[in-house]
């Protein structure tokens, strides 16, 4: 299937001026802030030494701009390093993601244990800019670097019985202190249907912003499925297993009525405790409408034709 990149990014990485004026007016009108603060409004500058976004945009809307490096690497969920969104950046500092082995096994002709370098070597590393939507109703635009999962799977040669792919995070409470708490079942596991996993938008990411993946973002290898909620993007992967039955996934095990297996971004199916119709883009004031399949409907909707997406949330 062909993936067409949408409009290329404009050179400006700052929030559009109109939005700034909007939020200034809104707050001033609400009478919440002193005149001094309002007068001091300035657009969000990229840090001087922060890397520039690189990569080919996929499925971006015309007003989508890469989320600043500071937010991409400073605000995320990675419960293996704590439950606050600033915890991963703080507590993953000492994590050493090398050497790293990845096991590929299950219903494949060619299973094996690979050193990360050998695992990546046969594939083309690409920079791609994707939209990212967290199940908690915030979103980002992230310049990922990685390889196509399909590439890895083809090399492993799934047998005809293989229907799903199961992923597992490193389980080592000495290196991942969050695993000492019982907040989730460890290790973190995730899964995709094989045809989803083979879809060319799915990445095994090794970096962001043209740099190696920071520890807090799931170093050294994580899944990126841009049309699904962020928690499907399992981090620090040590095992990829082909199976014949739908695997369990950690958040589904934790709260089955709130988090399903598919977890496709869908503005029409609310989380029981909040609406999924809108999202707050990190760095923006006004909420945006959430797009079906996070804006990748043209590409991936056919994977789910005939499926009740309300049932299979």
């Amino acid at each position: 299937m062909l993936i067409r990149p949408s409009d290329p990014l404009t050179s400006s990485e700052t929030t559009p001026e109109s939005m700034y004026l909007n939020r200034r007016e809104f707050l001033a009108a609400a009478g919440i802030l002193g005149a001094g603060l309002v007068a001091g409004a300035a657009p969000r500058p990229a840090g001087a030494q922060d890397p520039q976004a690189v990569g080919k945009p996929f499925g971006l809307q015309s007003d989508d701009k890469p989320t600043p490096w500071k937010d991409v690497t400073g605000y995320n969920n990675f419960y293996e390093f704590g439950t606050d969104k600033s915890d991963p950046a703080e507590y993953a500092k000492g994590f050493v993601p090398r050497p790293w082995t990845v096991q590929v096994d299950g219903l494949v002709a060619k299973s094996g244990q690979f050193q990360l370098e050998d695992f990546l070597k046969p594939s083309v590393v690409e920079d791609r800019i994707y939209r990212h939507r967290c199940v908690e109703a915030w979103s980002m635009v992230i310049p990922w670097r990685g390889i196509m999962l399909a590439d890895v799977l083809k090399r492993a040669q799934p047998t005809p019985a293989a229907k799903y792919v199961e992923f597992t995070t490193l389980h080592d409470a000495k290196r991942m202190p969050g695993q000492r708490s019982g907040v989730l079942q460890w290790p973190y596991v995730e899964g995709l249907r094989l045809d989803e996993a083979m879809y060319p938008l799915v990445l095994l990411a090794t970096g962001v912003y043209g740099r190696d993946l920071p520890n807090q973002n799931g170093a050294p290898l994580r899944l990126v499925v841009p049309w699904k909620y962020g928690f499907k993007g399992i981090k620090s992967i040590v095992r990829i297993r082909l199976v014949d039955k739908q695997p369990r996934n950690t958040w589904n095990l934790s709260a089955p009525q709130e988090y399903g297996f598919y977890s496709n971004v869908n503005p029409e199916v609310d989380h029981p405790r909040w609406t999924q119709a809108k999202e707050r883009r990190i760095g923006e004031f006004a909420r945006r409408p959430t797009l079906m399949f996070n804006g990748y409907k043209d590409q991936v909707a056919s994977l789910y034709s005939g499926m009740d997406l309300r049932q299979n949330y």
Partner: peptide, 15 residues
Amino acid sequence: MGSDILRDTRFFGSN
């Protein structure tokens, strides 16, 4: 919140 929204100070973080 005001300074984060208007000046992107991230006092309260990214959100």
